Amino acid sequence: MTGKIAFALWLGIACPLALAGEQVLRLSTTTSTDNSGLLAWLLPVFEARTGTKVQVIAVGSGKALELAKNGDVDVALVHARAAEDTFVAEGHGIKRRDVMYNDFVLACPPSDKADIKGGSDIVAALRRLASSEVRFVSRGDNSGTDQMEKSYWKAAGIRPPPPRYLSAGLGMAQVLGMAAELQACTLTDRATYATFKDKAALAILVQGDPKMFNPYGIIAVNPARHPGINERAAYQLIDWITSGEGQARIAAFRPNGQQLFFPSALPAR
């Protein structure tokens, strides 16, 4: 059984409405947009406007773009700008638009045994962490967060040796829990941290570095590569989420009074 056939069968089981003929849009996206509750806040409005059911597949950005490259989804909402640009340049995606941004933070045990609290230079903080005895848990899943973390270690020129550096291969929520249990640090997007901070018992020790800027983009799968995709619905979602209404809805998402994502869409060119 090919991957596409298996995926189609899974969609038929997971989303019976697709079998009944209702228009379905397949969206691959990051765990941060799903775990934070943002999609549950945004998508019902879009679905009501268009009569389209959105089937969400929340994975790391690398996997989300892989699903899009294979034609297993119609549109991707991710946060891995370099990978997004490559995806479009290679002809896999079209109509890419900026959507929103937030930032990354370095979350660690409050005891701060690496003595990095209050810093705003992520590379310097990671050098200090690597020279300490503190452990670090990496997502290790080629997500946007994982790609950014790897770039910081490369810039630092040093990384904790095993077993102080652990590659989890898990989503952000699970990694936060793992880091808390192991009394380790991890790099996380602010939205997921804010959603799980009460359970994870980790503190933000480093934030505010411009290098920790975290932009999100949305991209339609190129119908020339995969004629069977729902091109019309993909364009509808892109147009809506970057519209005044969609952007205002993003800005209004404030669980516990904290704004987690900031709209950044520019007029379509």
Rank of each mutant, 00 (worst) to 15 (best):
A8G: 04
A8Q: 15
A8K: 15
L11V: 10
I13A: 13
G21T: 06
E22H: 12
Q23S: 13
V24R: 00
L25I: 10
S32N: 09
T33Y: 00
G37Y: 00
L42I: 06
L43F: 08
P44C: 05
F46G: 04
F46Q: 03
V56F: 08
A58L: 09
S61C: 08
E66F: 14
L67H: 10
A68D: 00
K69V: 00
G71A: 06
A76E: 09
L77T: 05
V78R: 04
H79N: 12
A80V: 04
A80I: 02
A83V: 06
A83F: 00
E84I: 08
E84N: 12
D85V: 13
D85R: 15
T86P: 00
V88K: 02
E90A: 14
H92W: 14
H92A: 10
R96Q: 12
R97G: 03
D98N: 10
Y101M: 08
Y101R: 14
N102Y: 07
D103M: 02
F104Q: 04
L106N: 07
A107D: 09
D112L: 08
K113R: 15
K117E: 10
S120A: 12
S120Q: 02
S120F: 00
D121Q: 02
I122P: 00
V123P: 02
V123A: 10
A125Y: 01
R127K: 15
A130G: 09
S131W: 05
E133G: 13
V134K: 04
F136G: 02
F136A: 04
F136H: 11
S138V: 07
R139W: 05
N142T: 11
S143F: 06
T145N: 11
T145F: 05
T145P: 03
D146L: 09
D146P: 07
K154F: 05
A155M: 12
I158G: 05
P160W: 01
P162H: 11
R164S: 11
L166E: 09
A168M: 10
G169Q: 07
G171F: 04
V175Y: 01
V175N: 07
G177N: 14
L182E: 13
C185Q: 10
T188W: 02
K199Q: 15
A200S: 15
L202I: 07
I204D: 06
L205V: 03
L205D: 05
L205Y: 01
Q207F: 03
M212S: 11
G217S: 15
I218T: 04
I218N: 03
I219S: 08
I219K: 04
A220M: 08
N222R: 11
A224V: 09
P227W: 12
G228H: 14
I229F: 05
I229L: 11
N230E: 13
A233W: 03
A234P: 08
Y235M: 14
Y235F: 13
I238V: 10
D239Y: 02
D239N: 13
D239R: 09
S243V: 07
E245W: 08
G246M: 10
Q247L: 02
R249T: 15
A251V: 00
F253T: 01
N256Q: 12
A265V: 07
